[in-house]
Amino acid sequence: MGIEYTIEFVVPDHYDRSALQRKLPAAPQAPRPPYDYTVEPYGFCFVDHLVDAEIAALAFKRLIDEALRHGDRVQIRER
């Protein structure tokens, strides 16, 4: 359970996910991670599990920043 968002942008061909992974905050040891994300053809799918608001917010911000590196327009939707 949590809040799911899509961060829509034009994902470049051969997108390097490993560089993004290094930018995201590490989650503390817990039974459930504060957030999850996937890279989809339309952009990112982000889930805030409502466990640690500070870490989830930082990860969400960094995903938005990453999306903006690849274009001038990003659309965020709550699912």
Rank of each mutant, 00 (worst) to 15 (best):
R32I: 15
T38D: 13
Y37V: 05
A59D: 03
R69K: 13
Q29T: 15
K23W: 10
G2H: 04
A27K: 07
P28Q: 06
E66N: 09
G71V: 11
V47K: 13
V10A: 13
R77L: 14
L58C: 04
K23Y: 08
A56G: 02
R17P: 04
D13N: 11
L20R: 01
R62F: 05
D13T: 11
P31M: 14
L24P: 08
I3Q: 07
F44Y: 13
R22Q: 12
P25N: 05
A67C: 01
I7R: 02
M1T: 02
R32M: 15
R77P: 00
V47W: 10
R17H: 10
F9H: 01
D65C: 05
Y35V: 06
Y35C: 05
T38A: 15
L24K: 01
D16A: 00
D16Q: 02
P12S: 06
D13L: 09
P34H: 10
D48E: 03
D48L: 12
Y15L: 03
Q29R: 15
G2Y: 02
L68A: 06
P28N: 05
Y5M: 09
A53K: 08
F60W: 05
H49N: 09
I55M: 03
D72E: 14
G43E: 11
K61L: 10
T38C: 08
A67W: 08
G43S: 07
D16Y: 00
A57P: 03
K61S: 13
R69F: 06
E4A: 11
E4H: 01
G43H: 10
P28L: 09
R32E: 15
H49V: 01
A59M: 05
I76P: 02
G2Q: 00
Q21E: 14
G2A: 01
I76N: 06
R77A: 14
L24S: 08
L50D: 14
L63Y: 05
Q29D: 14
P31F: 10
V47Y: 09
E4W: 00
P33Q: 05
A59E: 06
